[in-house]
C-alpha cells in the first residue's frame, strides 16, 4: 500500500492561490455566450393560410457585440435562438409555413403571404447599472408582411422584454440567459396575439375568403 504524504505547510499557500484566482476571474467583465430559447408551442387556432418565412443573413447570424469600458468584449450569439423562436411560433399560427431564401420569393402567388422578421436592436441592463435586483433584456424586431404578389402589407415593430432576478450564487451569465429567454418568450407571445390586431394585417386577413369562412370569421 502506497502512502501519500501531504506537506501541510503548503495548504495555506494553495488556499491563497485559489482565492486569488477566484478574485481575478470575478473581475473579468468580458462575455461570450450563446443565447438559448425555451419557448413552448403556442396554443392557437391556425389561420387557414399558406405562408412563407424569410430570415435574412443578419437575422440568422445575429451577434450582439459591445466593447466598452463597462462591457469589454461582449459577444452574445442570438441568431440561431431567434430563428428557433419564430420556427416554434409560426407553425402554430398558420396552416402551412415554408422557409424561403429570398424576400422576393413570393411574386408568383406561391404563398398567401411572406413574413420577414428583422432584428432592429438588443439592449441589456445589469443590476449594478440600474441599482435594482434585476437583469433586463429588450429585443426589438421589425416584421414585414408581403402579400401574394410580393407587395408590402405591413412593417411593424415588435418588442420583447424579459427580466430575471439576481439570486444568491446566480452568475451574471445565468441571469442574462434567463432574461434573454424571457424576452424571446415575450416577443413570441406578442407576435402570436397581436398579429391580427395590426390594422393593415387585419384588413389583409379580412379580404381573404378562407379566413372569413374559418373560426377566425370575427376578423371579417
Amino acid at each position: 500500500m502506497k502512502l501519500q504524504i501531504i506537506n501541510l505547510s503548503r495548504v495555506p499557500r494553495l488556499i491563497f492561490i485559489v482565492a486569488f484566482s477566484i478574485m481575478l476571474s470575478a473581475c473579468n467583465q468580458s462575455l461570450t455566450m450563446e443565447a438559448e430559447t425555451d419557448v413552448p408551442v403556442p396554443l392557437m387556432s391556425k389561420l387557414p393560410l399558406n405562408m412563407a418565412v424569410y430570415y435574412n443573413e443578419q437575422f440568422r447570424n445575429y451577434i450582439y457585440e459591445e466593447n466598452s469600458e463597462d462591457r469589454p468584449n461582449w459577444a452574445i450569439k442570438s441568431g440561431a435562438s431567434m430563428v428557433e423562436l419564430f420556427d416554434q411560433v409560426l407553425p402554430s399560427m398558420f396552416q402551412n409555413i415554408d422557409h424561403v431564401d429570398s424576400i422576393n420569393a413570393n411574386t408568383n402567388n406561391s404563398f398567401d403571404g411572406l413574413l420577414a422578421p428583422e432584428i432592429s436592436e438588443m439592449q441589456f441592463a445589469l443590476p449594478n447599472e440600474t441599482k435594482s435586483d434585476l437583469y433586463e433584456v429588450w429585443v426589438k424586431y421589425s416584421v414585414k408582411l408581403m402579400d401574394s404578389k410580393g407587395e408590402l402589407v405591413a412593417d411593424w415593430p415588435l418588442t420583447g422584454y424579459g427580466k430575471s432576478s439576481t439570486e444568491f450564487l446566480k452568475s451574471r451569465d445565468k441571469g442574462l440567459q434567463a432574461a434573454i429567454n424571457s424576452a424571446f418568450r415575450d416577443a413570441g407571445a406578442k407576435f402570436a396575439l397581436n398579429f391580427n390586431r395590426v390594422p393593415p394585417i387585419r384588413q389583409w386577413l379580412a379580404d381573404n375568403p378562407d379566413v372569413c369562412n374559418s373560426v377566425h370569421a370575427d376578423i371579417c
Binding site: 419557448v39 413552448p40 408551442v41 403556442p42 396554443l43 422584454y161 424571457s182 418568450r185 415575450d186 413570441g188 407571445a189 406578442k190 402570436a192 396575439l193
Partner: peptide, 12 residues
Amino acid sequence: VDAMYPYFETST
C-alpha cells in the same frame, strides 16, 4: 404557463 402559452406570460 407553458401549456397556456402565450396567454399567461407576464405581459399578456
